[in-house]
Design a binder for these strands. Structure first.
Lengths: 345, 345
DNA sequence: CTGTTAGCGCATTCAC
DNA sequence: GTGAATGCGCTAACAG
């Protein structure tokens, strides 16, 4: 209950005021770049503030009704899944870059429990801990959207606008990338492909699956199967085994993440198939894992840090101006590495 | 009797006071479980608070000089390195579990720039954003320790006490694990081993290296080389190539992380060596990557989430009581998977 | 235009 | 149980 003993007293505006011989109001104007003080006085005040190392008390500002100068991010995944999920760290790094330029901090919560996630949003907002949040892993019929709208917490949704229910979004056009992937496979002569996808409830899973199916249909290719996984090694292995044991197995498989792609590679090899000669493999979201395998995996690469940076930029704009427009980030680019080859007749 | 809560405005203690007909002071006592109000009044106050959805304003509490109810964590790595670093996400997940039980939040910063890290600590503390921090990636002669002590920011250091300069630490006994690893290799008949280590400035790198060297010496084994890396694929590849091109190459290599171990596996294979028959490989810190390779890699596994939980627990104790004792977490256990074999004569 | 004064916001706590 | 002070920055209303 009792706060720890603080060392030196924190410098406050009052101290700057007494040192500079003006009122605390003038100091506040000077320090915030607002009119009401002469340039000369302002310079003197700023010099003193820097000298004694004044930093605005976030508590006081937030209490006054101002910004908490922080945004929140809940990562709603199992910790064990996150271990091999390169997306979030890169995404966070991008967010941070923007936040630090604006003096904002990031509050993070890692929990897979939906109730806790919702409670966290409520609590962060009520307790004035954050000014807004970034919502990731958008789901189909995502119930979090209603909560956020209901309590009025500013939010930027990372995901396809079609599933965001009107919220401001930052999204990468996965449908476009999916088309490009199918097109590439088509050019290589593949006519029977499959998709080892992520969890069905994720909006981006659905976007990818639908786009691939549509593109296959238009090109007269067969989409042999869309198997949903939890991105894990085990699920990827199972999915790939199922696909390869079909009477007419696919000649190319697109995996929604790197781990399942590696699992697929292993399954193919132990089934006596050569990659890419007998089976082409394409991984969604590039990572060092894709480089390390044999053969290295071709991948759909996004600039994840700049994706995070965009999300942060849009959210800050939303917080500061009450409105913001959705932004489409660059869609994924196909990086060829050697796991794609001409389909064998 | 009870008017509906005004829309758009957070319920405050003042509102509860007016509704229950007592002073705001009494409400505060009631809500915080302190003496000063009758049980009957307390019950009535709590009921009203719940009804109108009151949540304490963190800003007001922090302003009052109380806790910010948040702790900070700076991850001082390059974002690109973090992509394949399973440690931090698992560590954070463990931290969160403890924090959420105590109503604390986590402030995160990801930056590889030392200046920014130091500025962040200063700012978090000055602005009352956090009550304490967890310091990871302890370095030899770590200058962050002096800063933290200087500004009086409570901190728990994750790392070997020998390098923590008296700060409270939570640490896993890497020396012990290193000994166990060398002992295991010794039993398998290896007499020439090598260590592909992490960055030399990390305290845990030094602890591991020294322990391995010492243990090798005692067992009459040769430590052919300690090569420092930045944990990257490229560095691991280079290190392994260097080791395998020695006149008398090692028969076993210990890698400080999973990525360099996989790089080593690849190098060995392309050099025509069989793993584990010609070369044994051991990875520090287990991960799904170790399971996915062929052969799957034997690894030194720690319970990282509980490591993080310990750090959080100790830090909260330090914050709330002004003192805390260092805690040694369980040291890593050797998980055998098939990348270790008897040395060939 | 330059600057001052007097609250506000919210929970906590001490003297009464 | 109460009233009032406290912590800190911001800003409307006001004065020179």
């Amino acid at each position: 209950m009792t706060a720890p003993a603080r060392h030196g007293r924190r410098p406050t505006i009052a101290e700057i005021a007494s040192r500079s011989g003006v009122s605390s109001g003038a100091v506040s104007y000077a320090l915030n770049g607002r009119p009401g003080v002469s340039d000369e006085t302002r310079a003197r005040i700023i010099a003193i503030a820097e000298e004694i190392g004044w930093v605005p008390s976030n508590a006081a500002r937030a209490l006054r009704g101002g910004a908490a100068s922080a945004i929140g991010l809940v990562i709603a995944r199992e910790p064990s899944d996150l271990g091999v999920e390169p997306f979030f760290m890169a995404f966070i790094a991008g967010i941070e870059q923007v936040l630090s330029e604006h003096g904002f901090a990031l509050m993070l919560q890692v929990t897979a429990r939906k109730e806790q996630e919702l409670a966290t949003y409520r609590n962060w907002w009520s307790a004035r801990r954050v000014d807004g949040i970034i919502l990731t892993d958008l789901k189909v019929d995502d119930e979090r959207l209603a909560l956020l709208a209901g309590i009025g917490l500013p939010a930027v949704v990372v995901g396809d606008p079609a599933y965001a229910n009107g919220a401001t979004t930052v999204w990468s056009d996965d449908a476009h990338a999916a088309q490009a992937a199918v097109e590439r496979l088509s050019r290589l002569g593949h006519t029977r492909i499959a998709h080892v996808a992520g969890p069905a409830q994720f909006a981006h899973t659905r976007v990818r699956s639908e786009a691939m199916r549509r593109e296959c249909h238009e090109r007269g290719m067969a989409m042999l199967g869309e198997i949903n996984t939890d991105y894990s090694l085990a699920a990827g292995t199972q999915a790939c085994e199922d696909l390869l044991s079909l009477p007419e197995p696919p000649t190319a498989i697109v995996f929604d993440n790197d781990v399942t792609a590696l699992a697929g590679l292993r399954v193919a090899r132990s089934a006596g198939l050569r990659v890419p000669d007998d089976l082409s493999i394409l991984a969604w979201d590039d990572s060092p894992l894709c480089e390390i395998s044999e053969p290295p995996l071709s991948a759909l690469r996004r600039d994840v840090p700049s994706y995070g940076a965009s999300a942060a930029t849009v959210l800050l704009h939303l917080i500061q101006h009450g409105e913001a427009v959705s932004v489409r980030a660059d869609s994924a680019q196909l990086v060829e590495r050697g796991s794609l080859a001409q389909a064998r007749p």
